[in-house]
Amino acid sequence: MAPAIWLSLLAATVVICITPGAGAINTMSNALAVGWRRSIWGVLGQELALLAHIVIVAAGVGVLVANTPALFNAIRYIGAAYLVYLGVRLIFTKPQPPAADAEGARRATTRTAMLRRGFWVNLLNPKAIVFFLAFIPQFIDVDAPILPQYLILIATAVGVDVIVMWGFFAVAARPFRRYTETARGQRVLNSVFGALFVGVAALLLFIH
């Protein structure tokens, strides 16, 4: 991949990743619940989904999804329903006691649970597949070896997304951590992030 093409890829990826969405909301929610350091597990789950999207597009399945309205809509509805489920569950989450009990509750949020949630939050977005279907060909030279180009694209996309999610959105949640020390603060934050999940679900359903 030529340096100029890679720089264009890098710039486009930064712009895409910095745009708030379900992944950013999930990352900030995790950072508030378990702290900045452990929130990386949710980010890693999201990166696995991003990798899956790229592989799906590279394998040609993305064309099938994009050209099959019933399949596209089925994935879209499932994804929206999952985000609503996460939002409602967060809104009705019982506030945890401060200090030692809260620390125990944070430990109870396992790495596997965050990894799994991050994966499904990103994977169940068919528009991401369609987006990559339009995005990836702009940076792939079909007359050059394909595999090295895809490896560079994957490394760039995943690397930038980890930096943005963990280095920006997770860090951005840190000033709000003090609100998690009171039951009222937890309820407010849970309600806000729960509503954001539901809002993203609505966008997924109604904005085409």
Rank of each mutant, 00 (worst) to 15 (best):
V55S: 00
A52C: 02
A22N: 03
A108T: 01
I91M: 15
F92T: 12
H208N: 15
E103M: 12
W120G: 05
E47L: 15
I152N: 06
I78D: 09
A24P: 02
R111E: 06
P175D: 10
V198E: 07
L48F: 15
A202V: 14
T110R: 03
T19M: 04
A102K: 10
A173E: 05
L203N: 08
F135S: 04
L147N: 03
L86V: 09
F132S: 03
Y85H: 11
A134K: 04
V88M: 01
L196Y: 00
F206E: 01
A100Q: 09
A2I: 02
I129C: 10
P148K: 03
T27V: 12
A49L: 08
T180M: 15
R37H: 01
T110N: 03
T110D: 02
A59F: 05
S8K: 13
L44A: 15
Y150C: 07
V158N: 10
P145V: 07
K94G: 00
G199N: 00
F72N: 09
W6L: 13
G60T: 06
G45W: 03
P3V: 00
I75Y: 15
T182G: 04
P95N: 13
A81N: 05
V171K: 11
D143T: 10
S29G: 10
L32C: 07
A144D: 05
M1H: 12
G194Y: 12
